[in-house]
Design a protein around this nucleic acid. Structure first.
Lengths: 224, 224
DNA sequence: AAATAGTTTAACTACATGGTTAGATAACTT
DNA sequence: AAGTTATCTAACCATGTAGTTAAACTATTT
């Protein structure tokens, strides 16, 4: 099966490698993932990985950069300068949720990135993370400047958002294997889990947004 | 140096093993931790671990059970039935923060536990996690019943708390190695990071509590 | 003191894993 | 078509790791 040209083939190979690596890293973490397993998942000889990308750490950094970079880009794309801070916050949260939805391996990878606190992280990845965080920072600052948001620690808000969205997606992904756990959660908040239109992630995003807006807005909705 | 008796010596050995294992698991995760390393950290021969505790997974489960169980117990101990839901929530959050403060390896271990979504978890550990969550559930239900809290998804609240407290502790722990990151955060919210009395974790807990109470209380503090 | 049971250790095994190499194959150039 | 370069592969190597074993050592019992 001859290809158009070498470059295209190369790109396809690298694509396969990165996809396989993302999947395996997401499932098993950095140490838990083996290069052999990644090679198998990518349908590629192991040496090809070393030829195209480099060693395991280089591969990991590349995956992180791609995954987190996509998230940052996705959020930025949805944002609009004419929005109010509240609208922007809603967009921000649902943007993260949406990316998580489209890109299931993201949460564990992202969590490990934050978790390591900059240990394994390359400057590129750190920049990606800072970009995601920076968007939120601006929203909160604008809100405070305009007098619609109270002052609050932005990093804590950030962690609350990531924690809720990423963890929830992750726990939810394991519901198949723990049906009794799923049942329990659904009993706890039937409204939430039964009449969800669209996806879980979106519902989670909506709930997180509702709560954070109540927390941040100077005159929030009083009755509920 | 002769010991009182064998039983005491045995307990001390197991104690050393569990402490060493907790530390190494926290730093490196399950796959990243090697039994040799744990043995070294515990000043114990590797075979002694297998003799007293069992294989790597048994050791991990035991560590998880101990760490998470301590958290649950610590929170429960601080709680008091005569408290209002708001007071209970504050106690709950600061209880988690306090345990995290006293027990630094907790966040990464706990995160991996939640993260794995019940995959590696033993029934015992699952029960511990459910106990911690159950306390929050009761608080929220009481608040809703008494009409002081709005209805909200308890699991999401839970994830927001854990996310903020655990992540923050973790990132903060790496500030030594990334001083520019620490500087950045401190610039972002100077009030928060400079005039903190006591510890970071307590300050974080206070901020999380403030935000969540604003989010949950039907008539929260209007002006701020 | 001898015997016994509980505890610890050094040495070892089997295997998985990260990484390499030399050669094959396919693509591009002339 | 021949030669050159980029891409890929099977086989291999060195090391690290989970787990075992048999023997040494220590406390307890008789």
């Amino acid at each position: 099966m001859p290809q158009k040209n070498m470059a295209a083939n190369k790109d396809k190979t690298i694509r396969r490698i990165l996809d396989g690596a993302t999947k395996v890293f997401a499932e098993a973490g950095y140490s838990g993932a083996s290069v052999d397993e990644i090679a198998k998942a990518a349908n590629v000889n192991k040496a090809t990985i070393y030829y195209h990308v480099g060693d395991k750490e280089a591969l990991y950094v590349r995956v992180l950069h791609e995954v987190i970079g996509q998230t940052a880009a996705g959020i930025a794309a949805r944002m609009n300068n004419s929005m109010t801070p509240a609208e922007k916050l809603a967009t921000y949260i649902s943007g993260i949720a949406q990316t998580v939805e489209n890109y299931p391996p993201l949460p564990p990878v992202m969590m490990r990135a934050v978790e390591s606190g900059g240990q394994i992280l390359s400057p590129e990845v750190a920049a990606d993370l800072m970009m995601i965080f920076g968007i939120l920072l601006e929203i909160l600052e604008q809100g405070a400047r305009e007098g619609v948001f109270i002052k609050a620690n932005p990093f804590i808000i950030y962690l609350m958002i990531i924690g809720a969205v990423a963890f929830h997606r992750n726990v939810e992904a394991n519901w198949d294997q723990k049906p009794e756990l799923a049942m329990l959660f659904k009993q706890m908040d039937p409204d939430f889990y039964t009449k969800l239109e669209g996806s879980f992630s979106i519902s989670v995003a909506n709930e997180v947004t509702r709560l954070l807006l109540r927390a941040l807005e100077k005159q929030g909705p009083q009755k509920d």
